[in-house]
Design a protein around this nucleic acid. Structure first.
Lengths: 164, 164
DNA sequence: TTTGAAATAAATGCTAG
DNA sequence: CTAGCATTTATTTCAAA
């Protein structure tokens, strides 16, 4: 078969079925042993280890991290804080972004285009702590024109980027 | 002082410095070996393994998963879809929630209170795919009254629930 | 790229403090 | 709850196809 000399692309669509199976398995259980992974996807252990390493080096597997239950750390209250800016100079936006990401209790910050500029997902201990977080870490920045906070009832992970 | 016997609560504030250090380390690298983890937090390997197991069983460590770069799967375009409902009957809301979570390309669904009812974070291949996702998996549900879609420029993980 | 098998490294079970 | 050691298990390496 005419095989093209496949260069190792940084990030592209050179993933075969084995790669996708590995990604799916590691999305479910990032600590699955290489032996179990190899058995599940049907290749030798050495091959599996090779593939996983390649996937990590290419960036397809960005990272493997533990998910901590915020309730275990006394932060049962989640909120989404919509942040709207008064100015959009690159430097001010970047500084605010950095500050938001570095705020204790902040889980994720979405920088978005459209009505709002940032969506901040935060977990806090109490309504008072939420108020403090907003006052001390969000509205304290002069570039912030307006915020709107919504209580998060529940967060669920979606099916993700696989199997679509 | 009220000397309450500290039982091992399923999920509560019985985490000491070692536990917190373990959580912090596993948030950074969920595949760190037990040996490396033990060295980092300054306890014996057997102790470290015991702590980690306890943290997993208590639910403090909810799970350990690989994060996949959506670009590697050909989904470079991210959006937040705000979903507003026309009716809020428990069953309809739950069915929609389930459907959203099960939609290919959906990364996270936030069920929130206030102006919007759901926030859907999705990754797709193209603007056309985004339109299709919304038409075929969101507005197709009669309970959905209105949607508003915003482009996501960037997503950054926050400092999280530790160190606050 | 894939593989099996040897060599290295790590996790687990057990004992005890 | 902690630590040390022996056993079991997993990962890495590498020559070969």
């Amino acid at each position: 078969m005419g095989q093209q000399p496949k260069k190792t692309q940084p990030v592209s669509g050179t993933l075969d079925g084995t790669d996708l199976a590995i990604l799916a398995a590691l999305m479910e259980d990032g600590r699955m042993t290489n032996a179990a992974l190899a058995a599940r996807v049907g290749v030798a252990e050495s091959t599996c280890a090779y593939r996983v390493r390649a996937l990590r080096e290419s960036g397809a597997i960005a990272s493997i991290n533990a998910r901590i239950d915020p309730r275990a750390l006394g932060r049962p209250l989640h909120a989404i804080i919509k942040v709207r800016l008064g100015s959009h100079s690159r430097e001010l936006v970047r500084n605010l972004y950095d500050a938001l990401v570095d705020t204790p209790g902040v889980l994720t910050v979405f920088h978005i285009g459209g009505g709002d500029d940032f969506l901040v997902h935060a977990a806090v201990a109490s309504p008072e702590k939420l108020r403090d977080l907003i006052l001390e870490h969000v509205t304290v920045h002069p570039v912030v024109r307006q915020t709107e906070t919504q209580l998060v009832f529940e967060v669920r992970e979606g099916r993700g980027v696989l199997g679509g």
